[in-house]
Amino acid sequence: MKKVFEKPKSLTDVPFTYCPGCHHGIIHRLVAEALDDLGIAKDTIGVAPVGCAVLAYLFFDCDIIVAAHGRAPATATGLKRVKPDNIVFTYQGDGDLASIGTAEIVHAANRSEKITVIFVNNAVYGMTGGQMAPTTLEGQITQTSPYGRDPKTMGMPIRVCELLSTLNSPGYIARVALTKPAYIVKAKKAIKKAFQFQIDGKGFSLVEVLSTCPTNWGLSPKESNEWLEQKMIPYYPLGEFKEVF
């Protein structure tokens, strides 16, 4: 029998530090598979965020820098401008990208920096213990919306793909989820397409990956997958939002 599925080469052997059932591990594997399939791992530079995935530098077998919270798109801009022949990706959570880093992601996208952004939307701040994020759903209870997110005072959740797709600069923007094998196959395709978009020099690419956070949602991994499908996907529709170059 032949081995048909194994750990991608561009992942190190370090076990993930993420909570049981958290989708970060799946996303890490999909990114690594994309790097392997496209043969670019050794030419890739990763930019890790501040958040649960700050430890990504332990897991990816390529050069990686940890950026300041929210500033990964700017750091990636600096890297890519000095090393245009290298592939640069950022890996960011929703607090990192859609809250403190909003200006950086909007302008990196608007300049159509030739970088690829893996944006993990799990509707909370994970590492710091489950506070409300810009992507927290209406009525969703978190450490800082203990009575449910109230749009009157806390605004509505931000749809990043739709927001960035209104920019007139070139870019590839898609949103995916991982709660079913079929979704995972599509997610991998989108992630590969995003990296290919960069390889072809067409411009900015971003894939928003809806992800669970069982620990901070207070749900089991199984229930978290269901919550994501029933509550997040309706508000954050999956699909490709932009492909302009």
Binding site: K3, F5, F16, Y18, G25, L178, I184, V185
Partner: peptide, 18 residues
Amino acid sequence: GCAFCAMTCPEVAIEVYK
């Protein structure tokens, strides 16, 4: 050997042979 389990595993803990 459909590998659904391996694809879903967040820990890359499953290898599949066919």
